[in-house]
Design a protein around this nucleic acid. Structure first.
Lengths: 120, 120
DNA sequence: GTTATCGGTTAACTACAGGTAACTAGTAAC
DNA sequence: GTTACTAGTTACCTGTAGTTAACCGATAAC
């Protein structure tokens, strides 16, 4: 019974950790934005440029998602001294640490699709 | 430009694969159910027993989630010849393949929580 | 016949993610 | 003064994930 409780406790902690991860990786846009920033890392990714490049995203969602990503230290925001003012967004080194995690999701997802297509 | 298109194409495939994975790992209950089945693999996990053990889940959600998991070959369903009828659910060997993936989510989430607490 | 168990289903509701469109403020070109 | 560009914000709407509670048919104990 004690072992049971301990197991459930770590289980709960692990589920919390997964919830934390999915807060970043989940949702429709966060990973798309991060991948785009990572694929265009040497460019000046302004708000408008990202909005043009990330297909279908609205200004509202882009604004909200970039704020979330910045709060989580995954993306940095730099106001540039231009006229009109432009803002540059960059993926952080820490932000790049999500990609090994997404890779395991990609691999499992690809394999799962094959598995299901074979109907088992 | 061609390289760009190719890159975006694989990017889209990978995002689809992630979406597929998150269809299984996401949501409030699927992972809890799978972990419970895995932690009690030698027991007869009937519908009611799972509902009692997985804290807070309703019959409706449990029924729906178990159906989803069965369709995805992650859980097997066996009707037992008892009176009244009981149904036994087991995690499949294939179902156990999600745990390495969740482990990387757990590790990233735990590290992220530490990182954010330090305020960066 | 009443109560209890099993494995669910159904209907009505709520909360939140995300979409759409209009709008803001500041600056510059015409 | 009008138009256009920047980076957003605001209000309204919709679709879906999840909750709650009542209900179903089958079987058995009392």
């Amino acid at each position: 019974m004690k072992e049971q409780k301990k197991q459930d406790a770590t289980c709960e902690e692990e589920l919390n950790a997964i919830r934390d991860s999915l807060e970043v990786l989940g949702g429709k846009w966060k990973l798309r934005i991060m991948r785009h920033l990572n694929n265009h890392i040497n460019e000046t990714n302004t708000f408008k440029k990202i909005q043009r490049d990330v297909d279908g995203i609205s200004a509202k969602m882009l604004s909200k998602e970039l704020q979330d990503l910045e709060i989580n230290l995954l993306v940095s925001r730099t106001v540039l001294n231009t006229k009109p003012v432009t803002v540059r967004y960059d993926i952080t080194t820490y932000g790049q640490s999500v990609f090994p995690v997404t890779e395991s999701l990609v691999n499992w997802g690809l394999n799962h699709r094959r598995k299901i297509k074979q109907r088992g």
